[in-house]
Structures are given as structure tokens and as C-alpha cells.
Nucleic acid binder design. Structure first.
Lengths: 337, 337
DNA sequence: CCCCTCGGCTGAACCGGTCCAGTGACCCTC
DNA sequence: GAGGGTCACTGGACCGGTTCAGCCGAGGGG
């Protein structure tokens, strides 16, 4: 049982392929009566447009690509990507676009994937995430001429369209809040130093600490895992200038830090205040529940997808600044004892 | 700058399109000298096969589909899907297959997605997850004639190829272990009751509790969220026949349960033992670290992808029983006080 | 020396759509 | 009633590959 084609419909309706094409695509060139007849036949025999045939005529592939370049075990850890993907999807599926996903090992492999997808006509565009400082992917995709939206700060996006949020102001808001509570020694447990958003947050943290002339404001870099988060916390809490507050770059490290504090018989929040970046069910489930920097990640993904679809449609798309992360206070922050 | 086609290569090499096609596909019909010349030109001008054109000739679409039918906020919570996807991908990308992903709201939408993908020739097959009891999707995809691998127990897979693990024996192993420690009142905080693996675990739990004539063995169903896990735990710990051990169906509920216990001034593991289903960094980060049922989820995904590719290649693929979850003991389980 | 075979290649059909030029039929208008 | 315009539709080229029938020339066997 072959899939029905427009030729089958044409034969049944007693018209030409061309007329069927017009009818099915809502284009002028057929009478309403004929159109209705053709649509009825198409429905009856269960006709679906063959995407390959359409694509071959220079039409869109109706798919966009996303290559994620983090080891599988890190991907699973953070809800971020799954939420991002569901946001992207919500937008794409409304327009019947598909998402092509690939998990790759490094940036070279990632570029290989994009080149292949683009070269094969499999995707109409892509979303670039996890920008690095001086990211080599930016000039490379620019050169490919593929429509691309970048999730990250405009300063790192070259001439690509960026969708971003103001992490700096979020960092500032957090530190100012902690200082208002009375903290003078605040530490930051950051993610991978080569990521551009880590650099931006690091700088903002340094700046605000200098502005407020804090006593100490160390930054420790990690790989986002709970183990490194725990180790960093242990190190910070063992130092002579022990911080009274720590801001973590993700939820899993914050929870690990909380465990370390409890292990060391420090009370949270009396002896140590904790702030996590990105809210997740996890943050609300532990005791005390964690004060967090909240982002609407699905919306972030949806906006990126919107911008990309606009770009694919040939529209001029400018950068989009999304809502900055908001501080949501819970039980893990308080004035130092 | 148009993408180069085989016609461009043919012109440059001074041969026909046909000859180029033979050369590029490693088929007989051209001399080795010509083949080398053609390959060199193809490489030089950066030729890539146009997938649409190939697909149009009845070739494979070189993509498989995966539609996930859980609300976005649940998806983000559990590392399961991200790990599963990375496992699937590892296998697919080795064969240059792409993964089409879509997050849908309900089973009807999911079937719509599969029908569209299959009808449009966008995918060569699909992977079905989260089987329900008497799942309507099973007969429907069977009817479509699309190659499909099911992640779930053979009893629910109809004539589709199942890839599964023996959850029953894992449940039994866990309960027997807890009983060996001295527990007589063991509860199970389960996931969505309509999921077929929940039903299987429920039955196994009931069976082993009966076999060992336990004093009480309540089951509470939840939606997998931390909140419901916490509520279920609170209810169980407030009952007159308070359990001394609880087995949770995922990690986030187990952590929520741990928090509830600590809130109620119960010591874990002295007053309450906790077991979580599926290991994750989270389980190792909390205090005490959680005893868990460990599965190699990426491998699970990889096996499903392997089976599916075999099916697509027209091979006869039988059911595949994957390794059963193993009990990994950590600090959250001990003899009752 | 002729015939046959076979390797190497060409030309064209084909996949399932889109889209453009062209063709009648019909209506309107002066 | 001739000219012009519009509408509904046809036929065929085309997208970029694959594949098949057939052609040509070289080499081998009788």
C-alpha cells in the first residue's frame, strides 16, 4: 500500500496535478467547487504532503537544529536544557517545525553536525547555546550563512542574533540584598570559566563587591557537578575568612553546598546563607528551601525559537533582551548570626 | 552562492550525472581513476548530498522520532529523559541518523505527531516511551506500519519490539534487603498509576510483601513531583502504623521525603530508611546520601536505538531484556532503631 | 578475422511535489 | 460583434539525486 500522492488525487478528481497542488495549498487557480472536491478526496485517501518533495523545490526543511555540547552526565543533572527544549518546542510545534537534536562531544563535532545538517538541507536554521569566550563557532556559522540565534550576551554573538538576559543586574541585585542583610564576606561558586556567561557573572560579582567595598569576595570555578560544588564549599568554609554567604551558579551545587554546611554543623541560614542560580523543584524540596535566582527558561527558549523562525522567514530580527533573573527569597538566606 | 550539486561535479569532471552518482556511492560502473577524480572535485567544491533528493527516491529519511508526553515542568525534573536521549543519540549519530524530538501535551497529540512525521516521510521509525496500561498508541502505531521500538514491558507492547528491564526483580531485591535489615513496615511512594511500569512495580511490591508476610505495605500514588512526594511521606509518617522504610519511585520524591523526615525530627536512617529509584547526582549530594536502584539509562536508550535501526534495516528484531536495576546501598538505609 | 563479452560510461526516466506559460471558455464593453 | 480581460485549468519544466537500459570500444576466444 503505497502512500497516496497528488497524482492519485488528480486521477480520481479528473484534473491535473497542478490543479491539485493549487487546491491543497489554498492558492488561487481553482474554483471553490473543485477545491472542495479535491480536499475531500485528499482527506479520504489520507494524503500527506511528502516533505522531501517539497524541500526539493527549494521550500523550507521545516526543521531547526540544536546541538548540545556537554557530556551526557552533565546534561542530565540540570533541568535547564530540558526546560529550554520544551520552550523551544512549544514555539516550533505551533508552526509545525521539528527540532533536530544532537548531543556532541566537542565544538568541532558540533560544527560538523551543523555543516552536515545545513549542507544536506535538513534544517533551516539553528540555535547556538553555551557560548564560550571568543567562541570559534560564531565566525564559523556566520560564514556558513545559516540563520542562527544565539542564546547569550550580544558581546559574544558577533553579527548573529542574540537572545539574552541581564545576568549582571541579577548578580548585583543578589549581592546588594545579601549586603543589606548584613553580609560582608560573600563567595561565588561559579561554573566553567570558559563559558561566556560565567565570565560576565564573574565580572559583575567583582564589580559590585568593589563598589560596596566588601571584606572578601572569592570566586571558585567548577564544572557544575555536585562533587565540585561540595569541594568548593568545603574549601571556602574551611578558610580563615569564612564567607557568611555563598552564591552558587546552579541548583545542584547549591544543594551540595547545603549538605556540606550541615555536615560541618553550620546552620543554614544562621551561619551561612545560600543562593542558587535557576530555580527547580529541587530547591524547594530541601530544608531549608533555597533562595534562588529565577528565570522563565521555557520562555527564554520560546523567544529564541520565535526569533529564529522570523530570521528564517527573511525578517530582520534584532537582539532580544529577555527578563533578567529575579531573586526569589526562601529560607536559605538571613542576616549572619 | 548555490549549494553545489552532482550536476556541477559532472560538468567539471566532464562526465554524466550518473557516473558521478556511481562514483560518490562507491558503486561499480566507473573506473578507479574517474572515481578518484570525481571524489576530489566533490571534496574541493564542498559537495554534500541533498537529503531531500535522496529521500524522494525512496531512500531512508535518516531520522527517527521521539515524542515525549509529559508536561514540561515534569520533564525538567527528572534526569531520566536527558540521559535516555543522550544514549539514543550516541547510537544514532554513529550511523548519521538524526533524532526528531517533540514534547506533546497528550497521547492524541503524540499520535498526530507520529502520523505526520511518518506520512511526510520525515522519519523512518520511532521510539515509544511511558507506556500506559492498555495503551491505545500500541495498536495505532502497529496499524501505521511504522517501525517502532517500545521502552517498556513486553506484556504492554503488543506486537511491537520491546526493550525492557525487569523492574519486578528490582522491587523484590529491595524489599528483601530491607526485610533482612529488620524492617516489617515498608511503604512505596509510586508514580502515576496509569503508567504500565508503575502497575508492574505495584504488583511486584504487593507480591513480595505478601510472600514475606509483612505487617504493612501501603502504596501511595503521586505525579512524580517533589510536592506530592513530600505530601505522601508526611501522610505515611503521620499514620499510626508508621513505616520504617519507604521506597520512592524517583529521586526528587526521595529527597523531598528525606526533607519531610528531617522536618519531623526523624533520623534517617535510624528512624526511617529511604530508597530512591534511579540514581542521580542529587542522590549523592544530600545527607545522608541515598540508597538507590541504579540503571544504566544511556545504555537503555542506546539499546532501543540499536533495535530500531535494525528494524528499519528490515532485520527481524526480537525483544531485548536489559540489565535489571541494581541496588546501590548508601547511608539512607539501616536496620530500624 | 569475426563475434562475443564486459567494463565504463551516457541519456533519460523517475521520485512527488511546485510553479509558470499557455489555452479555452466565458463575460463585459464599446 | 470584435476586442480585451478574467477565470479555471492543463501541460510540462524543474528541484537533485538514483537507477536502468543501452551504447561504444577494447580484449579474448574460436
Amino acid at each position: 500500500m503505497r502512500r497516496p500522492t497528488i497524482a492519485d488525487i488528480a486521477r480520481q478528481a479528473g484534473v491535473s496535478k497542478g490543479a491539485v497542488s493549487y487546491a491543497l495549498n489554498g492558492q488561487p487557480g481553482v474554483s471553490e467547487a473543485t477545491r472542495a472536491r479535491i480536499l475531500a478526496i485528499a482527506k479520504e485517501i489520507g494524503w500527506r504532503p511528502n516533505l522531501a518533495a517539497r524541500t526539493l523545490n527549494g521550500a523550507r526543511a521545516h526543521a531547526v537544529g540544536l546541538a548540545l555540547c556537554r557530556p551526557a552526565r552533565f546534561l542530565g543533572v540540570e533541568p535547564f536544557f530540558m526546560e529550554l527544549i520544551s520552550g523551544i518546542e512549544a514555539e516550533l510545534s505551533a508552526r509545525s517545525y521539528a527540532l533536530l537534536l544532537q548531543v556532541v562531544g566537542d565544538h568541532e563535532a558540533e560544527m560538523g553536525v551543523y555543516r552536515r545538517w545545513w549542507g544536506e538541507g535538513r534544517v533551516d536554521g539553528a540555535i547556538l547555546v553555551d557560548l564560550h569566550v571568543d567562541d570559534p563557532r560564531v565566525p564559523q556559522v556566520q560564514e556558513m550563512g545559516m540563520p542562527v540565534v544565539v542564546l547569550g550576551h550580544p558581546s559574544a554573538a558577533g553579527s548573529l542574533v542574540p537572545v539574552w538576559a541581564d545576568d549582571s543586574s541579577a548578580v548585583r541585585e543578589t549581592v546588594e540584598y545579601l549586603v543589606a542583610l548584613g553580609h560582608r564576606r560573600i563567595a561565588r561558586v561559579a561554573g566553567l570559566p570558559q563559558l561566556s556567561h560565567t565570565a560576565i557573572r564573574d565580572r559583575a560579582f567583582g564589580d559590585v563587591c568593589a563598589d560596596l567595598s566588601l571584606d572578601s569576595c572569592p570566586i571558585v570555578h567548577t564544572d557544575y557537578t555536585g562533587e565540585e560544588g561540595a569541594r568548593a564549599t568545603r574549601r571556602l568554609l574551611s578558610s580563615p575568612e569564612r564567607p557568611t554567604a555563598i552564591v552558587f551558579d546552579n541548583d545542584i551545587m547549591a544543594v551540595a553546598g547545603l549538605s556540606v554546611a550541615q555536615e560541618m554543623r553550620l546552620d543554614v541560614p544562621a551561619d551561612l546563607s545560600i543562593v542558587a542560580w535557576d530555580d527547580s523543584p529541587l530547591c524547594q524540596v530541601v530544608r531549608p528551601p533555597l533562595t534562588v535566582l529565577t528565570r522563565d527558561i521555557p520562555a527564554y527558549g520560546a523567544h529564541a525559537a520565535q526569533r529564529l523562525l522570523a530570521l528564517i522567514d527573511g525578517a530582520e530580527a534584532g537582539p532580544l533582551e529577555d527578563e533578567a533573573p529575579r531573586l526569589t527569597t526562601r529560607g536559605s538566606t538571613a542576616p549572619p548570626a
